[in-house]
Design a protein around this nucleic acid. Structure first.
Lengths: 342, 342
DNA sequence: GACGTACTGGAGAGCGCTCTCCGACAGCGA
DNA sequence: TCGCTGTCGGAGAGCGCTCTCCAGTACGTC
């Protein structure tokens, strides 16, 4: 296999200089149409493809960004990261990011930072200038990566508001509004003895969903709402529902802070012979694929994850393009998707 | 912000030449220990990080590989790819690949090729020399990407044997053996009227799982096995089970070609008031997170996806390192994971 | 006809790194 | 003392591209 053609080869084939070929390729300045045509033919003839490394070297742009899932490492450790994809949520983020970036010829590098040392590896990698920016989905509140990113002044966008204020752009959904949506719907359909399964209470999103639900219920005249804390996994939803049922056997409506926990709760309800939505109504959160896998299909608060991911891409590109662009946040409105469970 | 330090800066700080610094960084040849120490201090002092683009330009190595999910685009199209992650399988592949590559400082670029034009984009991107090699998870039989990859003589490894023979390395699981495992277990636990829910029959993996099951059943004296075809999604499992039940109401054991379809089948069985495993025993395939989300937890054929993904990484690295390495395939043995459903 | 202006294409200087020479020097046997 | 071998560090040539100059040409104006 001979060496791949370079700009020089194309230039020679077209009888012009390297600079002209470069101009044609990058569509810069006016180049005579006849010459453009000649160059294009030469490119086709030689099968030329620009060398990205050489280009990056001078433009200081790589055309890639990092998609980092950080602070994972839940209870069941494994040598392999990526069990985070057990929650459909992450697949949706990845899909949304790729969907937006792909038409632009930009692809994300997939990284997991689930331990302190992998976090250092990630930082080191980013500092090598391998990427133009980063999109970060942080799971844990303890995660220091957002801070490190902000300090490194690398263009970056977060999914979800950071627990502590950090000068970094982010995109989030109106968790409070979502909790209210669930409360209003449950009350409207006649539920009177409500309970909720929250996410981990050190996560802002969990706090807000819970607060939104509680506040709306208070307005409806229910100041006290039983609450069991889960960790966004299906089994934790089962455990929580089991506890709720033991302590409050007469429950007739439940708001679970995500679909996976709702799915677990549904399983337990069925085991106890409670019909859904007849005896107990259930509302989830996310509108993930799990909502459709539930029986009955889950009424849930839609989290427009794909749109949010696309917005992250857009925002990141802006930051890359304009390094002085101010830190920005964008909140998306949730909506209620009514199915059969409530 | 001033320009980041270069080799030159470090060299000056250490009072040596660029070449020596480079040697220290890459650990090549004998450099006097005292000088090594001086250089290391200078690196720390200046906060130097090598520029990957410049390095790639001369080494012709990028240190990144592509992780391509190809031939997606199932029935329900969306502007966003990545709903493939609705099947936990892909998350496991991604996790396995990252888990193996990460310690080596290599990260995968995530790409989806779900339409002809995105496939062309992917090929164009690969040809730009953005990556050293590719790992490809191809879903559809019609997918031409494996062939294109082989033709481009870019180092590549496939997940699963291609439908048509192509000179390209791959890693796969013993689907036939898996089908046999399921058959033997079901028969051993006393099932006599068995049926199966297969995957799409144009996919080699589906064919093999089915064939393995049928052959083993024939050995056990059951030459004819009712079969309903699904497409590896949960709803398709429901539809298939519904059909099977209608045509063969006395079924007492089912082998589903993946866990998601088994989950759907379980749902239908319960709707029809059949207890599992009392009335009907169920065996799935994959041992994915869905198996644990089933009620009862699913007995399933374990598909060692993470190990296979790691092996793909290893194999790809070998191909990158040694361009003349012969095309190789590696088949992993499935095992049976016994839970409660059978 | 001299000059200014606009536009086009070429020359050439790097971008930051690696790696092949090659020279300097120490050690050692003859 | 000479020369040979072996070790270690420096010089410098690129890798393939972009982009800033600058020269050449065509055209309009006074």
């Amino acid at each position: 296999m001979s060496a791949p053609p370079t700009l020089e080869d194309v230039a020679r084939a077209a009888g012009v200089s390297r600079a002209t070929v470069s101009r044609v390729i990058n569509g810069i300045r006016n180049v005579d149409l006849a010459i453009q045509e000649k160059v294009k033919q030469a490119i086709a003839l030689t099968g030329y493809v620009p060398n990205q490394a050489a280009r990056s070297l001078v433009t200081r742009r790589t055309g890639t960004i990092a998609l980092i899932v950080s602070g994972a490492g839940g209870s069941q450790e494994s040598p392999f990261p990526g069990h985070v994809f057990a929650d459909p949520f992450f697949g949706r983020v990845a899909g949304g990011v790729v969907g937006f970036l792909r038409p632009l010829g930009i692809y994300p590098i997939l990284m997991f930072a689930d331990t302190p040392e992998t976090r250092d590896q990630v930082i080191a990698y980013l500092r090598q200038g391998n990427v133009d920016g980063a999109i970060l989905v942080s799971i844990s509140t303890e995660d220091t990566l957002p801070k490190l990113l902000a300090d490194a002044s690398l263009p970056a966008v977060l999914f979800a508001r950071p627990a502590r204020p950090i000068p970094i752009s982010y995109v989030d959904v109106g968790h409070r509004a979502g909790g209210k949506l669930a409360a209003d719907h449950l009350v409207a359909r006649g539920c009177r003895r409500l309970a909720t399964i929250s996410g981990p209470l050190d996560v802002p999103a969990s706090q807000d969903r819970l607060a939104g639900f509680q506040e709306a219920m208070a307005v409806h005249g229910h100041p006290y709402i039983p609450c069991a804390e889960g960790n966004f996994t299906l089994p934790s939803g089962e455990v929580a529902m089991e506890r709720l049922l033991a302590e409050h056997p007469d429950i007739d409506g439940v708001f679970a802070a995500n679909d996976l926990m709702a799915q677990g709760a549904l399983l337990v309800l069925r085991q106890h012979g409670r019909s859904v939505p007849g005896d107990v109504a259930m509302v989830g959160f996310d509108d993930s694929s799990a909502a459709l896998a539930c029986r009955p299909p889950l009424t849930t608060v839609r989290h427009p994850v794909e749109d949010m991911a696309a917005e992250m891409g857009r925002l990141l590109l802006t930051h890359i393009e304009h390094p002085d662009h101010p830190v920005t946040s964008r909140i998306f409105e949730p909506t209620l998707v009514i199915r059969e469970s409530a």
